[in-house]
Simulated assay, not measured.
Amino acid sequence: MVAVAHGSRDPRAAATVAELLDRVRALRPDLPVHAAFLDHAAPAPARVLAALAGDGAGAAVVLPLLLTAAYHSKSDIPGVLAQVRRRHPRLDLRTAATLGPDPLLTAALERRLAEAGVPAGDPGTAVVLVSAGSSDASANATVQTMARRWRARGWRGVVAAYASASRPTPAEAVAALRDAGVPRVAVASYFLAPGYFADKVRRETLAAGAYAVSPVLGAAPEIAELILKRHAEALAHQDSVAV
């Protein structure tokens, strides 16, 4: 499996991906797991896949470590795979789905909120679910759907907000809930790894009146489990197509 992350200039991001993939390896010691990054960090996916082809690997599952299906999963990764297929036609490349949406992500978000002192489903707390945001409207709509479904787990409310490319901003969402009389507003960080956006969201939402901001998802056990779930789905899908 080649797990492809977004990549960041912030060294904490690559370290978090490494920790997460170590957790995956602990769950599946028999499964070779390789990390790759689309930007700002090495190695690039094409280099990892070329090395696998050179080592005689017959197949590889490329798994996007992305929380929503947007430009990177719809354009960047397919472009890389098309290039690799041309250069290494004997390497059987299979592509897994992005991590989100999935109930395991909701469980991981609640774990991180609990670590920040926010009980799961607290009826006195409204949650702002913050993603990076995208110019792809369907990706933002996926986060909105997650927020709507999550509200049914007992929260006073759950609203989506975006760190970039769309509105409301996280600070705007927090301020609107506070202005509406919500006594406690917590921020759920829908980011895989720390970096610029996660730091900015924490700073600005606390200033806007949030009482807690969860850590990034990182190496939560639910995320490791979800990676293996997506890997199994990719293999099962390819097998069903072959049949």
Rank of each mutant, 00 (worst) to 15 (best):
R90Y: 02
A97S: 15
G58D: 12
P119T: 05
P89K: 00
V62S: 00
S134K: 04
L63T: 05
L91T: 01
G121A: 13
A70P: 10
D102M: 00
G124H: 04
L49I: 07
L66A: 00
V80L: 08
P119G: 07
A69P: 05
D92R: 15
R86Y: 04
L129N: 06
A53R: 12
P123F: 09
H88F: 08
V84Y: 08
A46R: 10
L104G: 00
V130K: 00
I77P: 07
I77Q: 09
D55C: 11
K74N: 14
V127C: 02
A41G: 09
G117E: 03
I77G: 12
R87N: 13
L91W: 00
I77Y: 11
L109H: 01
D122I: 03
G54E: 14
Q83K: 13
A137G: 14
P64I: 02
H72A: 12
Q83F: 12
E110M: 05
G79A: 13
L67N: 08
P119Y: 03
A59W: 12
L65F: 03
A107R: 11
A108G: 05
A50V: 03
T98Q: 14
A137M: 09
P101Y: 01
D102H: 13
A132S: 15
T68D: 04
L66M: 10
L104E: 06
L38S: 11
P119K: 04
D92N: 05
R112T: 08
D76L: 10
V80K: 14
A97W: 12
V61S: 07
A132M: 12
G58M: 03
L93T: 09
A137I: 12
A51V: 11
R112N: 11
R90Q: 11
L93M: 10
P123G: 08
L38I: 09
V130I: 04
G117V: 10
G124C: 06
T98P: 12
D92S: 05
D55N: 13
V61A: 01
E115P: 03
D55F: 09
V118D: 06
P43C: 04
P119W: 06
R111V: 01
L109Y: 00
D136P: 10
P43Q: 05
L99F: 10
G100C: 02
L109W: 01
Q83P: 10
V48R: 00
V61E: 00
A116I: 03
A57I: 05
L129T: 05
L113H: 09
G121K: 04
L113D: 04
L91E: 02
S131I: 07
L52S: 11
A51N: 10
G79W: 06
A137N: 11
A137V: 15
D39R: 15
L52I: 11
T125Y: 02
G56A: 07
D122G: 07
A137L: 13
A126N: 06
R112M: 03
T125N: 01
A107W: 01
A97G: 14
L105T: 02
Q83H: 13
R90A: 15
K74L: 15
L109M: 09
R85S: 09
P103R: 00
E110F: 05
A82S: 15
L49W: 05
A107L: 11
V84E: 03
R47A: 14
A69V: 12
E115G: 06
A132T: 08
A82L: 11
D136M: 09
G124N: 06
R112I: 01
H40Y: 14
Y71K: 06
S75K: 15
A59L: 06
S73A: 15
L38V: 08
L104S: 04
